[in-house]
Design a protein around this nucleic acid. Structure first.
Lengths: 233, 233
DNA sequence: CGCCCTCTTGAACCAGTTCAAGCGCAGTGG
DNA sequence: CCACTGCGCTTGAACTGGTTCAAGAGGGCG
């Protein structure tokens, strides 16, 4: 295995659980690609002949809307897989994918992926489990979009991306705020105002870095009154 | 196979593609359950020892929010599978499930599902493909919630559920409007007003049945200006 | 310095919610 | 048979969260 990929493979739920020889097959025959911000990884509705594991950075999945602008469907980061579904169905990419930050991805030829599945019966199981986990995460996003206000969604986003760093709980924004906004289903202006309003709820937002100074206060805001849009049958 | 299940199995993407003996195994050993509206199929965070194929009717997946109301995550209907993921991971149900209308479901013991996967290597592949399709559909829902207005979402919902019936394009509302609203991420009042506004765009809404008299007009509304919330990076 | 790009801020506007009232219909009981 | 009641749906009026449009601040870079 290429030395710089060992760590990446450990972070990846699919590769790390795969049988060593399967992992070796996938990683050794794959190529590594570096992307700058806004470089394109693949285009919507093109034939899927490669799938990807993100080693580093962020990739956005998007679709072009009738009016020409792009809808951000999902954001993916290190360890996550891309386009496995498109490859296995031997079809077209369901979305486009661009780098949202500097990024490195492992590019696995579709044939290799099929070979791994054919030769390692457990590997299919691993993919299935991974795919179930993705469905869970999508269900949560749906719930969040349907039942939370923009400010609560911003709060959840911050909590999810916060990391301990020298004793402080900090969010290093992984990509532009405009993109964060779009991912959350709001406009950049609204995100800006939301961050402003969160200052009263345990959040200190600087440029490039946001600190959660009072996680409890933020959690209270997130959970309080969540469900103003819920079904009361 | 029980005679009344042949048709149901054909409608189900998972069962219909499975090897005949696998299908037989699953269907014959499963039990059939009838549900009235609002009967519970399983509860959130209970152990998943059965999975389900919907034979008839609608099932809603929901989660109880901190404030006690319920968030509608997804709606499922005939042919669709439920809780396969929860069973295979041998875990708890990720959501609760209630009948949203009268419904009939095929209840498959978890052990049986595992047996099918173990004895039929293709069956895992079929589940994987099915799970990929679900992810696609969830991606589309996310896109819709992020980039479309409530009225456009209502329009899409109508198009998706419209069926030709005696030459007219008709939507028989599968369940209460309050539930439709919640599924679409809006309040019942807003759904009511949306249907009112759609009257000017090729939709005639009566009680229990909505007719799409001018599909082209409706489509125009749906696509026109879609993406007011999109990312313009 | 000047240009570009991202982010912020303000004011007007609009979509969708909230609250409250009323309607239509099914079920119930007199 | 009809009043009573309960529930789902609609409608109206006031309100709020988020958008829109426009202007300005701040930073990076040639």
């Amino acid at each position: 295995m290429k030395p710089d990929l060992t760590h990446a493979a450990q972070r990846c739920p699919v590769l790390s659980k795969a049988r060593p020889d399967t992992r070796k097959l996938l990683v050794e025959s794959a190529s590594l690609r570096r992307l700058d911000r806004s470089d394109s990884l693949f285009l919507h509705e093109t034939h899927a002949d490669q799938c990807f594991v993100i080693v580093f950075g962020w990739i956005k999945l998007y679709r072009i809307l009738p009016n020409g602008s792009e809808a951000i469907i999902r954001m993916h980061t290190a360890g996550e897989t891309l386009a496995f579904a498109d490859c296995l169905r031997d079809g077209q990419h369901q979305t486009g994918a661009d780098a949202a930050s500097e990024a490195t991805v492992l590019c696995i030829p579709a044939a290799l992926l099929r070979e791994a599945i054919a030769s390692d019966p457990d590997f299919g199981r691993i993919l299935l489990t991974n795919s179930f986990d993705q469905i869970d995460s999508l269900n949560e996003q749906l719930e969040s979009l349907k039942c939370q206000t923009a400010i609560q969604r911003v709060g959840c986003f911050l909590r999810r991306h916060a990391r301990l760093r020298e004793g402080r709980l900090v969010v290093l924004l992984p990509f532009e705020k405009g993109l964060v906004a779009s991912y959350l289903g709001i406009k950049p202006e609204s995100l800006s105002r939301a961050l402003g309003r969160l200052k009263g709820h345990g959040v200190r937002s600087g440029r490039e870095e946001i600190e959660i100074s009072d996680p409890a206060a933020l959690d209270a805001l997130i959970h309080d009154d969540a469900g103003s849009l819920a079904y009361t049958g």
